[in-house]
Amino acid sequence: MSPLHSTCPICDATVELPGDVSASQVVRCGDCGADLEVQALDPPVLVEAPAEEEDWGE
């Protein structure tokens, strides 16, 4: 099965999904590093996964 593709909702990058990807799996965008949740599979839809805001404390 050729790898699935979708686009990152944050930076529009093309995101390659592993062949065995499953719904609600979290993948990372290679360009902007955002954690993305697979909301649907056919066609694949990605939404930003809830991530706790990292506090640099600066």
Partner: peptide, 11 residues
């Protein structure tokens, strides 16, 4: 390289 990342010390 385009370097603009959500988190980590080297965003």
């Amino acid at each position: 390289r385009i370097v603009k990342e959500r988190d980590g010390a080297f965003r």
